[in-house]
Design a protein around this nucleic acid. Structure first.
Lengths: 253, 253
DNA sequence: ATAAGCAACTTGTATATACAAGTTGAGGAT
DNA sequence: ATCCTCAACTTGTATATACAAGTTGCTTAT
């Protein structure tokens, strides 16, 4: 029932980066859950064992574990320990992580097709989120992608990125990289929040064609405003999901 | 910008109940956010101020604040403070709270119509969530409700409650009370988690009729398993939402 | 008038210690 | 063989202290 801790390479990697210690522990544990080293339903090492292993105090370990609890990787049981939760086999898009990051953890074959490369344009007239006048003048970058799981188109994604003249932003294409990941690594901008609304709509002719379903089929429409670590920088997205074979789901506790 | 702390009655109430101190702080702050004493977009008292006010240490205050952050009542900004988040004008059902509790905070007129009163039955054969054999024999209570906002039917809700012979459970009707609230107050059972999946489906004849929409219109179908403070007690629900006028939404950060 | 520096404040991270409540398994009694 | 007790373990709650990083407003220099 007790699983041996393996592979400290990630541990050392993050130490070198001077990450907060609780994040080192968190990433290590998360990685081992995702790779299957920690088996669903089984106990993680106890808090005290992790303290000894990572040479940190218990509140630090607890902060790491609480982050895993929040993301539903584990649940805790007083007196027993921390147990690896069952992993969901869904797109899990109710969290604010971008599509690439969520699915990079899954065993499914994913593909992103760029339907319209990032280009500068005006804000749409009837935009789903009110754009203040002062931001409207800046224009926005627009990006249109089709997301496929196991060669099946499951999501049409429209993305609007406020244009705030980030150095070098014009030259980034996002063809091979995650939008959120690129913002973080190249521009040091983290996506920190999402405000989202969900509706069920009927697929119009174009949407049905792109998602290979019948016209007027039911689509999940998720529209989002992402906040970032910069107060002057927002992104918006409109996601149209074919949920015939892939539900959208998560766990709250 | 700085809001005065008011009304310590709730504070004293929970102290009398010997609740964990962080929960006292949490409930106090939450209540004041919900009632509007702490205004959206404005700062809460700082952590140190709250420490002085409640005579607790900072980690205790932080635990309360972190719970509020998790539930999106506030967000935190290093150097600035804790800010009351914008409250959503939607059904907000992506959290695990029951319908009654969510909407009790809103200005809209809500109504629940009981379509089928709670009654004991067998588990459905094709249930959306696998019911283990040993639980199957217990049977379940079934409840069917129609939720209306401003007289408009917006949600069909089917609820299945595992029958574990809770004393007095038979006699409870839920006609005028929240299911979750009743479980908490009468049976000391808290709903602690939800595992949910969302799809878009086409309304069949019955669903369309109940929700006053055209057959084959797009419906949001949310199906959930609720975990509770008792390891042997679960509830399930299937929600069919007409999102024409009321989106489902929330904020993550 | 504007910019820079800095003190006082804010939240974020971390160590250290202590006690409470729940779990588990071993040992002893029946 | 079964049941009870209890020690050793688990996580939950809390205090106390310290330093780091970001924010804000005031003061001083240009």
């Amino acid at each position: 029932m007790y699983i041996q801790v393996e592979d400290c390479k990630l541990f050392l990697k993050y130490l070198a980066m001077k990450a907060p210690r609780y994040k080192v522990v968190y990433e290590f544990l998360k990685k081992n859950i995702i790779t299957g080293n920690y088996v669903e339903g089984h106990l993680l090492p106890s808090e005290n064992e992790l303290c000894a292993k990572f040479e940190v105090t218990r509140p630090t370990v607890r902060q790491a574990l609480n982050a895993l609890v929040q993301e539903k990787y584990i649940y805790k049981h007083r007196g027993k320990g921390s147990i690896v939760a069952n992993q969901q086999r869904t797109l899990g898009l109710l969290s604010f992580k971008g599509f690439t990051e969520v699915l990079s953890n899954s065993e499914q074959t994913i593909e992103t097709r760029i339907l319209e490369s990032k280009h500068l344009q005006d804000w749409p007239e009837d935009f789903f989120y009110p754009i203040p006048k002062n931001l409207r003048n800046s224009g926005c970058y627009f990006l249109k992608r089709l997301r496929c799981v196991n060669q099946e188109p499951v999501m049409l994604e429209y993305t609007w990125i406020l244009d705030i003249n980030l150095d070098g932003f014009d030259a980034i294409s996002f063809e091979n990289n995650s939008l959120f990941g690129t913002l973080a690594s190249k521009f040091h901008v983290e996506v920190t929040s999402v405000d989202q609304q969900i509706k069920a709509i009927q697929a119009d002719k174009q949407q049905a064609h792109m998602l290979q379903m019948e016209e007027k089929s039911a689509l999940l429409h998720i529209y989002r405003k992402y906040g970032t670590s910069r107060n002057d920088f927002f992104l918006f997205s409109s996601l149209l999901c074919n949920t015939s074979n892939y539900a959208i789901g998560n766990v709250f506790s």
